[in-house]
Amino acid sequence: MQKTRQLVLAIGLGIAFVWSAAFAPNAANAFSPQVIQKGATGDDVVELQARLQYIGFYRGKIDGVFGWQTYWALRNFQQRYGLKVDGLAGADTKKKLVSVTRYDKKFVMDNIRKGNRFTYYGGVPLQRQTSESYRGQPSKAGAPGGKGGQPAANTAKKTNYNHLPAGFSQSDINLMANAVYGEARGEPYIGQVAVAAVILNRIQSPLFPDTVAGVIFQPGAFTAVQDGQIWLTPNQQAKQAVLDALNGWDPTNGALYYFNPDKATSAWIWSRPQVGKIGKHIFTK
């Protein structure tokens, strides 16, 4: 393990050396001046991962999300090159990284936009490192946009990096955004965060099911589920509200129920201890 790694490193370094000698000015279009820290997303993270992979420190997926694997790779790099080991890609680290690696921005970003499976190890021809050639279907490469691929992602100018709060999947977030939009699309932002927070509080509570879907589809729990409004397409604001709730904000101060006082006449719901009113909804425990 250690041996192969060193071998890869040595080969990588050797090739990097040859390359950097041949293309010396390539450092010009490297990293933006920001310090990159764990948890960050974006093009700089892609470059960081690609460069670390180039010399064999990073073996994960180049996805533009600075997670644990990137963190350890960066620290190992810093240690190997005698830099301060802090897990931050600051000026010195980036300079060193740029000087010992080569970054083919077009190749990497194209693959990310197309959603290809690819790697970026130094010393291996690039054509052999993307999923298009993995699949071995030269006919597809001829058709731009690739029918089997992701045509929509190609057109988007900004690349989106999928970064999720721990413990929740993209579909959980989408489902919650649907529920929030169906239930509270006319409400102020804080009211939408509140509805999302109630869903999360119910998951926490022993009185309710323990999953996002279990809580949302509990019979009679949400009117938007009963009348099908949950299947409207949510807007960006609803998604943002869900993300805020998932990250721990709870404008309801721990409420489990809410109702619209103009519509709800169930005596039981009125008898619950109230916390407060946000927008049109009264929140209760």
Partner: peptide, 21 residues
């Protein structure tokens, strides 16, 4: 508890039973 979650009991005082479980 999963079965309670499938019954239309959200607006019914059935809390204590769910809590017991």
């Amino acid at each position: 508890r999963g079965d309670i979650g499938q019954l239309p009991l959200t607006l019914l005082p059935f809390n204590k039973t769910a809590e017991l479980l």
